[in-house]
Design a protein around this nucleic acid. Structure first.
Lengths: 214, 214
DNA sequence: TGAACAGCGGTCATTATATGACTGCTGGTC
DNA sequence: GACCAGCAGTCATATAATGACCGCTGTTCA
């Protein structure tokens, strides 16, 4: 404890207050409708002060995203060691993935939107690559599952890790997007889950019967 | 919650941090040996900032005192209604008074010192009168006890409230001072308590036999 | 179709707050 | 009584916060 520490602490606190306020607003209303003034008001600061801590509205948004992506990753840390097979791991992964997004409603929309608009919101390169890296870390969980499957002879050795990883990732997000967009609220969770289960079952069955690279 | 509120909150917090730090130091070392720099360091502020919140070292000291005096008063709120007689109330008052000071060692010394040196430490008039008033509120508890005694016929109607109040207050502080100054630590509490009990018993007996104003 | 305007992100001159080197006083030492 | 150490309190400088303002963009309406 000392003078310098106190000042750092207070800077951090203020920064966090901004993130917390912004998070709430972004999750309530999305990106565009949230004004910097409204963030400032909720954080009990002036707009000018916001810009002492962040360079742009996009950067705030992105920082929030980064935190969420990291938190996201934690949910899957024990997945491989806990699952009896790669197929099972994949199904579990999908289950958790969907639950996560259904419990934190806006998160999915936000992450997807970011994927779709990264290049628009010209962020500092540093930050941009950080996000990409964090996202890749999550995507690569799927790759790990496939690798695990190959190692234990569950999937053919010829399976292309990257391609299949991307396919599954796309499958997941595509199905979720579709059902968030269409279908009613009431049975959404079950519908998505069962759709995914079906899709994955088939995909896995297909994979197992591969004999040449794909 | 809003911007103005937040700023007030933060100002209050900082002010309290100073008081808290100063209190600890004053109670550890007394008044003189505590430098403003040491308060600043403990409060994780610069010396200059201290003077943004207080006008002098004395004022800090005094503010702490004010808080303590107020807290002090709370201990006696139910005294009269809980006691079967004025004599008993007086004895209880003395008992609590002594216990309080023995449990919070430096407080007594500090309060006494203040009484002795108020005029030296030229405080803002406002503050000074506030302290006097707070102190009087405590002293007047004794007066209340006497008044109660007269009302229920326990003491003669002719008893002079103010004079006797001051006498008792002096008796209390004098005896405590004496024993803090001389006598050993070990049996101090009992010695003080029994001395006071004796003194008060005699005083009360004397009072009851009065028949002309005194 | 283009003039007027509203609403926003971002800027910056002004204001508020914090800092610590400095000053002058005081009490102690030799 | 000359020196000095140590302190309360000051103030020029540095840091942080503020909100009026600017320019751009998308919308309304004659």
């Amino acid at each position: 404890m000392g003078l310098e520490e106190r000042r750092k602490r207070e800077r951090d606190n203020r920064r966090n207050a901004i993130l917390k306020a912004a998070r709430k607003l972004f999750f309530e209303r999305g990106f565009k409708p949230v004004t910097v003034d409204s963030i400032a008001k909720k954080a009990e600061l002036s707009k000018g002060s916001i810009y002492l801590y962040f360079n742009s509205k996009e950067e705030i948004y992105t920082q929030i995203l980064l935190g969420d992506i990291d938190k996201f990753h934690e949910h899957f840390s024990d997945l491989l060691t806990d699952s009896p097979s790669a197929s099972e791991a994949l199904l579990r992964f999908a289950g958790i993935y969907v639950d996560l997004f259904l419990s934190d409603r806006e998160l999915f929309r936000i992450l997807m939107t970011f994927m779709l608009h990264t290049s628009d919101m010209n962020l500092p390169e540093e930050l941009n690559s950080h996000i990409i890296k964090a996202t890749n870390r999550n995507i690569s969980i799927v790759e790990d599952i496939f690798r695990y499957g190959i190692e234990r002879g569950e999937f053919p050795a010829a399976v292309n890790l990257r391609l299949n990883r991307n396919a599954i990732w796309g499958l997941l997000n595509g199905i979720i997007s579709l059902h968030l967009f269409t279908g009613g609220e009431s049975k959404r969770a079950e519908v998505i889950q069962s759709t995914l289960r079906l899709g994955l079952d088939i995909y896995i069955r297909g994979l197992k019967t591969c004999d040449r690279p794909r």
